[in-house]
Simulated scan of single mutants.
Amino acid sequence: MECALCLRKVPLTFHHLIPRKVHGRNFFKKHYAREDLNAGVHVCRKCHSGIHKLYDEMTLAKQFNSLDLLKNDAAISAHVNWVAKQKSTL
């Protein structure tokens, strides 16, 4: 498989589109089904780390809760473009 963001073929991690840290909050319990809370994408470690360094969990949960929203963010896109140029380990 390849990273959903940088498209490199490297070992992947699972990124929850709504971070698990906020799943217990009332807003998310009321407005999202369990399947929605557990939805995510497979990304490489470098992309995953970059996402979490750029934004806190609440921002990710409310503003970047889909793959399209992640891809269309300028800061994440800049990081992903850098990652895409890095050497793949596979």
Rank of each mutant, 00 (worst) to 15 (best):
C3H: 01
C6N: 00
L7R: 13
R8S: 07
L12R: 07
T13A: 04
F14D: 05
H15W: 09
H15M: 07
H16E: 05
L17Q: 03
P19L: 11
P19I: 07
P19A: 01
R20L: 09
K21G: 09
V22A: 10
R25W: 14
N26T: 11
F27K: 10
F28W: 12
K29P: 00
K30Q: 12
K30A: 10
H31T: 05
H31V: 04
H31M: 09
H31W: 13
H31K: 14
Y32R: 02
A33V: 05
A33T: 10
A33L: 11
E35Y: 06
E35R: 14
D36E: 15
L37A: 03
N38Y: 02
A39V: 02
G40E: 01
V41D: 01
H42Y: 15
H42K: 14
V43Q: 02
C44H: 03
R45M: 14
R45V: 09
R45D: 12
K46E: 12
C47M: 04
C47R: 02
C47Y: 05
S49E: 12
G50F: 10
I51E: 09
H52A: 01
H52M: 06
K53V: 02
Y55K: 12
Y55A: 06
Y55W: 05
Y55R: 07
D56W: 08
E57A: 15
T59H: 06
A61K: 01
K62C: 07
Q63V: 01
Q63N: 14
N65E: 08
N65H: 15
